[in-house]
């Protein structure tokens, strides 16, 4: 029986249960100005930006190139937001990537503290800072999963894995795409958050983007024909499970047969 227990232990170590990213704590708290609820959307956006974003992105969204101590003693450093547009602001705020506690860490999905109205106000404010792209409206229901898989293999699977489970590249984590909405995928492709390359509409057109999103949404819940998906990590864990379970069973059978000789 020892062998079986050892096998189960190894299994438990090999098949990590991915924690739901959505429940992870927010990077940092937010500040809402007094009476901010009563103001118009424009004014609300400006006050929220000044309180929560300006330490790193500058008072006018011009960016902070060298680490500078800003409001509340926060050492800020960050890229300019002049021409990023509503597209990037909506992506970073709705994924909980921003606000970020430390500019040197990789932004990751976390609980969003801003309300929907506050986000809309901030997005409108950032969009008003320059001329940037608007929030995309992808239509994955029009996309082809097969074409999307081909595109995903060519442009995305190197980092995100063909099963959209994410992984690692040198110097960064690659997030899994299970919590990414259609709009967020469309935004990420155009922005290239953190170290991801960005893809212009000449490289991946709006139609191809629909295909891509259709595939990612399919890959979140594929029909596991074999039954147990084992994290969809590929042949390695599958082979290990087969070997450990099959060998355990064979050892048990051998012990059963061998009993007669020992007695």
């Amino acid at each position: 029986m020892k062998a079986v227990f050892a096998g189960l232990l190894v299994l438990a170590l090999l098949v990590p249960v991915a924690a739901r990213a959505g429940s992870s704590p927010p990077h940092v708290g937010i500040v809402t100005g007094a009476g901010a609820h009563g103001n118009g959307l424009e004014e609300l956006g400006a006050s929220l930006f000044a309180a929560n974003c300006s330490s790193c992105h500058g008072a006018l969204g011009q960016g902070v190139a060298k680490p500078t101590r800003g409001a509340g003693g926060v050492v800020g450093q960050g890229p300019p937001l002049r021409n990023v547009g509503a597209l990037a602001a909506d992506f970073y705020l709705r994924t909980g990537y921003m606000p970020l506690k430390d500019p040197r860490v990789q932004p990751s999905r976390s609980r969003v503290l801003f309300t929907d109205r506050q986000i809309r106000a901030l997005v409108a404010y950032v969009a008003s800072l320059g001329h940037g792209p608007a929030i995309p409206q992808p239509q994955p229901q029009l996309g082809s999963i097969a074409a999307g898989q081909k595109l995903f293999t060519q442009s995305c699977a190197g980092c995100h894995q063909i099963a959209t489970e994410g992984g690692y590249v040198t110097g960064a984590r690659v997030p899994p795409l299970e919590d990414a909405s259609a709009r967020q995928i469309a935004q990420a492709v155009r922005i290239g958050p953190y170290v991801m390359p960005k893809f212009s509409s000449t490289q991946i057109s709006a139609t191809q983007l629909n295909d891509l999103i259709a595939y990612v949404q399919y890959a979140k819940h594929p029909d596991d024909r074999g039954g147990w998906s084992i994290g969809r990590l590929g042949p390695w864990p599958e082979g290990l499970v087969t070997w450990l379970i099959a060998i355990g069973a064979l050892v048990c059978v051998c012990l059963l047969f061998g009993k007669r000789l020992r007695s």
């Binding site: 890229p79 040198t170 170290v195």
Partner: peptide, 20 residues
Amino acid sequence: ALYRTPTFAPTQPRPALVCP
């Protein structure tokens, strides 16, 4: 097949070509 490209160079790893 991988191109690591930082959105904000001062705080992120350098641009790099990576073999998967």
